[in-house]
């Protein structure tokens, strides 16, 4: 992979755009197609592209594996936590209407959806990267006749 200079240069240019597009998909999920799940997959794809271009070791320095454990858990906690907050505010579990006092406009629903989808984004992105790390780090048994691979 050391000689793929064009791929690397283009990749370095593309990866930030991919991440930004993921965030756009997340925050624009209310208005167009997309949402936390798709955004998480897109962000994970950006990380995986980095790993493919620069090697898994560099990728593990950029996105440390410890983030993955934290991110996975934080995502689920975010989701459940939103439910618990609505509970504390006197509503039902995951009833977002109580998140904002406005009665003429369902702003609470918007807040709740964004937060809940943020949890989905965290979990999906980190789990995808985790699966890639787990499989990508395994040592393939490279036979002598397959050196060119």
């Amino acid at each position: 992979m050391n000689s793929h200079i064009i791929l690397r240069v283009v990749g370095k240019f593309l990866i930030p755009l991919i991440i930004i597009f993921g965030l756009y998909v997340h925050f624009h999920g209310d208005f167009g197609p997309g949402g936390g799940f798709q955004a998480g997959v897109i962000v994970a794809a950006g990380v995986i592209l980095y790993a493919l271009l620069f090697g898994l070791k560099a990728c593990k320095q950029a996105v440390p594996p410890s983030w993955i454990r934290i991110g996975m858990t934080v995502g689920v906690l975010f989701y459940v936590g939103t439910g618990l907050v609505t509970w504390m505010l006197g509503g039902k579990f995951l009833d977002f209407d109580v998140l904002h006092p406005a009665t003429d406009h369902p702003l609470g629903q918007h807040i709740g959806i964004i937060f809940v989808e943020l949890g989905v984004l965290f979990t999906v992105a980190t789990v995808m990267v985790a699966i890639f790390y787990a499989f990508g780090s395994r040592q393939p048994q490279i036979m002598d006749d397959e050196k060119d691979f």
Partner: peptide, 13 residues
């Protein structure tokens, strides 16, 4: 919900 994307409203709310 006042969300243009009904899919998101159904999924998340």
């Amino acid at each position: 919900i006042e969300v243009p994307n009904v899919v998101t409203a159904v999924l998340a709310s």
